[in-house]
Simulated scan of single mutants.
Amino acid sequence: MGEVLTLASRDVGDVEETWRQFVPSAALQRVDPRTFGFSWTSAALPGFSVVSYRLSASVQSAIQPDDQLMACRVASRGAWVGTPRGDLNAGLPWLALDGPTTARWQQQADVRALVFDRSEAEDGARRMTGDDRFSLRSATVGASPVDRDLGAHWERVFQHIAGTLFVPGRSSAIVEAELRRHALHTTLAVFSPAFVAALERSAQRGAAPRTVRRAIAYMERHAHEPITIDDVALAADISPRGLQYAFRRALDQTPMEYLRGQRLAGAHADLQEATGVSVSEIAQRWGFASASRFARHYRDAYGRSPRQTMRGR
């Protein structure tokens, strides 16, 4: 399960020490300590972290995450963000990959970041695209969003992921695996036209019933585990985009819809046998972070609410 950290302090050293747990290259410079204070919340999963903090002070900070991929937004009036190649639009998220990035602001800033282990992110990108040669470098990933709308989309996704992972006990291993994939997919889609192009190239154009059967068998065996569509595609020996096409052609549904059906079936069985657990706990066990969304999907599948099933066992 993800490790959640919360901290409030008026010690400048605490900020830098805490940041370096997530981004070892982080450094604070030109800090005005007179009004200094910060509050921090983060969630750490293997190879992936979500960070949100408010820092009250005039600050300049610098990072150079050589072994990491970090997408960040510094929300502050008068903020400035720059790299050796030029200034970035401080009103949008930005991405640090190769080389240093520096940010500064006056009085107060709300900082939000998604931090990925670079090698794991690259492996994830290759699984998503089906392109074993795809690499994360400045030639394929930009420091700025492709456009303003995508920048706003990244912020919405960040809020969704943080809102789930920052609440202890709200997520399960299945939920966390999906959120980690969602975070990486969104970040790459926002900052990398090359990633989007590779996804488009990966679409399979022919029917693949054998591939679909392999995928179904894998999902039925592993639905209770934190698998993602990338894992299913790998087991079926096809790209995730090709798997989407094959499922649509063969079953008129997406692989994710099929996997959700398997997990709903598992939750249904647990509800029928439940003793001493809540509907919310069973929903989380089967990968549904939102109890209301779980209830909606469950009612669509079984014609009754999860609570009615539990009471009628």
Rank of each mutant, 00 (worst) to 15 (best):
P226W: 14
Q21D: 09
H268W: 13
D132N: 13
R112I: 01
A27T: 14
G266L: 14
P226H: 05
Q253S: 12
V279W: 06
E3C: 00
Q262H: 07
A236I: 13
P100M: 02
Q284S: 14
D32C: 05
D237Y: 14
A246I: 01
G47D: 03
M1W: 11
F116S: 00
L95S: 06
D98W: 05
G13L: 09
D123N: 09
L69Y: 04
H297R: 06
V157I: 15
V12M: 15
A274R: 15
A57T: 00
P65Y: 03
T6G: 00
R248I: 00
R127F: 04
A113Q: 10
R126D: 10
C72A: 12
P255I: 02
R85Y: 15
Q204H: 04
A197I: 08
H297Y: 10
G163P: 01
D149P: 04
G47Q: 01
E176K: 06
D270L: 06
F22A: 04
Q244H: 03
W40I: 08
A265H: 01
R30Y: 11
T275W: 07
A301T: 11
V141W: 15
G151C: 06
L7A: 03
Q21H: 10
A291L: 05
R293E: 05
A289D: 14
S280N: 06
V141M: 03
Q204A: 12
S119N: 09
S305D: 13
A283M: 07
L114D: 01
D66Q: 02
E17K: 09
Q68E: 08
G99Q: 08
L7S: 04
S171W: 08
Q29I: 14
S202C: 12
R293Q: 07
T6D: 06
D131Q: 06
S42H: 05
Q272G: 07
D230E: 12
A143V: 10
R263W: 10
F191H: 07
W286G: 00
E155Y: 02
A173K: 09
S292N: 12
M70V: 13
T275D: 13
A208V: 01
G287P: 00
L45P: 00
L271C: 03
H185F: 13
Q64C: 07
A57G: 08
C72I: 11
R10G: 08
T101D: 06
V212L: 00
S280K: 08
A152W: 09
R181E: 15
G163V: 13
Q60N: 01
E200P: 00
A274H: 08
E178D: 14
V4Y: 01
L55V: 06
Q272F: 02
R73I: 07
D147M: 02
A215K: 10
S290Y: 05
E281K: 15
R20V: 02
E220N: 13
P209S: 05
T35Q: 14
V167P: 06
S290N: 11
R127H: 08
L45W: 08
A26M: 11
V51D: 01
